[in-house]
Design a protein around this nucleic acid. Structure first.
Length: 265
DNA sequence: TCGATTTGACCGCT
DNA sequence: AGCGGTCAAATCGA
């Protein structure tokens, strides 16, 4: 995921070298893989477990670990000592196809509503695949006078995606909608590889989060004939984002985009 | 039938 | 020795 830590989400490097590579910049971000020049592990099982510490890794705290703009395949789950929640292991779906070594560990950290997840990423994506379908949608709602706001803007050539059902499954892991969920401000422009995101807790009225965010002004939901892929449509993306509070993060990285990096929870 | 997930086992690391 | 990350066979679902 080559993306800068969205505002409102903390983002820390576990590997000191990684942090060093970030440089001054909390404001800039580079794909660790390219920065560190660390060779991928050998393909053999034995070697793949070697020198674990040498692998670049960085940590991100997020409410929506399952939807970060890349396609992940779960390959393991483990109960961790001293942790109530199991740790989930994912790697890039294109691991074989494109020798993409990116992987991530997802671990829920608390019972909050929404629950906070710690996501540890290892290796940068080398698959160069477009992040998850970025909808050809521009949907904006005027911010209510109360200050509660939902702002979505998607500008993208995003093609349909094939991994829809998995997203569907993953979204079920999310907590059900609740008043405490963060509302979201999000601006997307995949063409320019830019996005900004800001999540923050608020007492978002239901009307602002979903029901009033009707189909008005939006393209009609695509037919279920998955001509454009497996059905994980722009429409679905939108619905998930609004109703299940899965937001669109880590769409891409932007060298000069804001990276507060240390606004932890 | 094929691809994704689950889960027990293996093994590196501390 | 115990913990944690990964593998891979079994299972599940579309």
């Amino acid at each position: 995921m080559a993306s800068p830590p969205p505002k409102g989400e903390s983002f820390d490097f576990e590997d000191p070298r990684a942090q060093e590579a970030m440089g001054s910049a909390s404001a800039s971000y580079s794909p660790p893989g390219g920065v560190f020049g660390i060779s991928p592990p050998e393909s053999s099982r034995r070697d793949s477990r070697k020198r674990r510490k040498d692998r670049p890794s960085w940590v991100k705290h997020t409410f929506t670990p399952h939807f970060d703009g890349h396609l992940w395949r779960k390959y393991g789950q483990k109960n961790i000592k001293d942790s109530v929640f199991p740790r989930l292991y994912y790697r890039c779906s294109y691991r074989e196809d494109k020798q993409c070594l990116a992987s991530k560990l997802v671990q829920q950290e608390n019972h909050e509503d929404p629950p906070l997840f710690k996501v540890t990423y290892t290796y940068e994506h080398t698959c160069n695949t477009a992040p998850v379908p970025t909808p050809d949608v521009v949907a904006e709602l005027p911010a209510p006078a109360t200050g509660d706001a939902l702002f979505l803007r998607f500008n993208s050539t995003g093609a349909g995606h094939r991994d829809a059902h998995r997203m569907e499954q993953e979204r079920h892991y999310q907590q059900p909608a609740a008043p405490g969920w963060p509302s979201m401000m999000l601006s997307f422009d995949s063409n320019s590889q830019q996005h900004e995101q800001c999540t923050f807790p608020s007492e978002l009225p239901p009307t602002a989060s979903s029901s009033s965010f009707s189909t008005e002004g939006l393209p009609a939901p695509p037919s279920t004939t998955d001509g454009g892929g497996d059905g994980f449509s722009t429409w679905d993306s939108l619905k998930y984002g609004l109703n299940d509070h899965v937001h669109f993060g880590d769409h891409s990285y932007l060298p000069n985009s804001g990276n507060d990096g240390d606004d932890n929870y």
